[in-house]
């Protein structure tokens, strides 16, 4: 019986172990090793930090790196600001079928691929697009208006793409807040602002943090949206990694960039958790 139980456990753990080792550990270790070698001749490599040095010595790389981080944080905050009222409405203000319907509406855009969704934004925002035409027709603009290929367009795309991943954890945590507790907050003299600050937000904090982590990671690692909606000036760090791997065929530098991105995202998530006094166990468990 004990042996059978052990066998069962081993079988159950096998997919997880395979997934972790084949898809996470081995590629990352390999990537790390690649990032640490320098090409000194044809087919000849040496162990060195040259790739990382290149990253720190080239202002464009550093600048793009910081830009990506700041824009991702901004996109995360914007997503939170928009998603919070939406989630509160879905979780607390409506009940039953309406609730399910609204939740489904948040999900519907994700039935089509990200590429198609991004094209949707391009149709709206481009020079000959719908918004531009409406503005001209209404006499608010004298000529065609180009709204694509800038940071604002990237931001719109990122927030739109991330919305669901913020709404889901927020709705889940807000649903677990009992109406009684909110009513008690008012009953004991609180107004809308203080109930929100002292009761609703502290209660939703695990959802806020986990939603923010997911959205931030998605923004930071997004490739499609910044590439399609951003212009020449709007470089995204993933574009740099892509160009090193695919265009320049410089896997060593690309791997180093990849690791810098991993370190950056880990640092920012860690900092955010410290700042909000949350722990990973509390938000994910």
């Amino acid at each position: 019986m004990r042996r059978e139980a052990k066998l069962g456990l081993a079988l159950l753990l096998t997919p997880l172990a395979l997934w972790l080792s084949l898809l996470i550990f081995i590629p990352h270790i390999d990537l790390f090793l690649v990032s640490l070698r320098e090409r000194v001749g044809v087919g000849k490599y040496e162990l060195s930090f040259a790739n990382y040095l290149t990253f720190f010595n080239e202002p464009l790389y550093l600048w793009t790196f910081m830009r990506t981080a700041v824009m991702s944080i901004l996109a995360t905050m914007l997503t939170l600001l928009i998603a919070f009222p939406v989630s509160y409405y879905i979780a607390k203000m409506v009940k039953g079928r309406m609730q399910a319907a609204l939740f489904l509406l948040c999900l519907v855009p994700f039935w089509v691929s990200e590429l198609v969704r991004t094209f949707g934004w391009m149709i709206l925002l481009r020079e000959t697009g719908i918004i531009s035409n409406v503005l001209q027709y209404a006499g608010l603009a004298s000529g065609p208006v180009e709204m694509l290929y800038n940071d604002a367009a990237i931001m719109v795309g990122l927030v739109y793409t991330s919305m669901l991943f913020m709404v889901v954890p927020l709705v889940t945590t807000l649903e677990s807040l009992s109406d009684e507790v909110v009513e008690a907050g008012y009953d004991l003299g609180g107004n809308g602002v203080s109930v929100l600050r002292e009761i609703i937000i502290p209660h939703a904090m695990p959802g806020i943090v986990s939603g923010c982590i997911v959205v931030f990671m998605l923004c930071l690692g997004n490739y499609l949206t910044p590439t399609m909606l951003g212009g020449k000036e709007s470089l995204w760090f993933t574009e740099l990694i892509y160009s090193q791997f695919i265009v320049r065929f410089n896997w060593e530098l690309g791997a180093a960039f990849g690791f810098m991105l991993l370190i950056l995202s880990s640092l920012i998530v860690w900092g955010m958790l410290r700042l909000t006094g949350q722990s990973l166990e509390k938000t994910m468990g």
Binding site: E180, V181, G185, D187, L188, N191, E198, I199
Partner: peptide, 27 residues
């Protein structure tokens, strides 16, 4: 409700789980 001189003890008490006892009473 927040201006009425009445207070309510709720069915499930509705103590604020995010606060300790002192903060609950002091709210």
């Amino acid at each position: 409700p927040n201006k009425r001189p009445v207070n309510m003890v709720f069915q499930h008490l509705a103590l604020f789980p995010m606060m300790n006892i002192e903060e609950n009473i002091g709210y």
